[in-house]
Design a protein around this nucleic acid. Structure first.
Length: 152
DNA sequence: GCCAACGTTGGC
DNA sequence: GCCAACGTTGGC
């Protein structure tokens, strides 16, 4: 099993929004970065665990845990001209972008702030804490995942 | 709103 | 295929 961290801006889609979805499940659409796409398309498997991270907000941090319930399939917003995620280079016949479905597993009572993560032993090598890392989907080690899960 | 870091684009 | 310019991300 793999462990991941996925960023979302809570103004756009928060963990509470996920909680309100049917089956608390939602496609993770709009990924337009090749490295992040490749993670989803090539490595994410059903049952993989996801740290749901809130970014670009007052208190950035991990808001809870979700899991992968559907493996990669084409992101239809990429050929929808009315979508903000529209990409003219992607088509139904030759999809360029993919998404997975995520289901909420547990929302933390209070989010674990980035500032807390930075102080926590064992997380020093997380990509999230490295300067300049902007990737919206990142791998997390099993140890790192369990440390954060136990904090929530 | 600033700015560093990084990905993408496009001219050559 | 190089690389400068530009756009985006995201913490602060």
């Amino acid at each position: 099993m793999n462990y991941w961290l996925m960023k979302s801006e809570p103004d756009a889609f928060s963990i509470d929004d996920l909680a309100k979805c049917d089956d608390q499940t939602e496609p993770w659409d709009g990924i337009r970065n090749y490295q992040a796409r490749n993670f989803m398309r090539d490595q994410m498997k059903i049952g993989d665990k996801v740290l749901f991270y809130h970014s670009s907000c007052k208190v950035p941090g991990v808001a809870g845990i979700a899991k992968v319930v559907k493996e990669a399939y084409p992101d239809h917003t990429s050929w929808d001209q009315n979508s903000k995620y529209f990409d003219p280079k992607s088509s139904k016949e030759e999809p360029r972008w993919f998404m997975v479905d995520i289901q909420l597993e547990r929302k933390f009572e209070s989010a674990i702030a980035l500032t807390e993560l930075k102080k926590t032993a064992g997380l020093e090598s997380m990509a999230l804490l490295k300067r300049g890392n902007r990737l919206s989907i990142q791998r997390v080690s099993e140890d790192e995942f369990q440390i954060i899960e136990s904090m929530g």
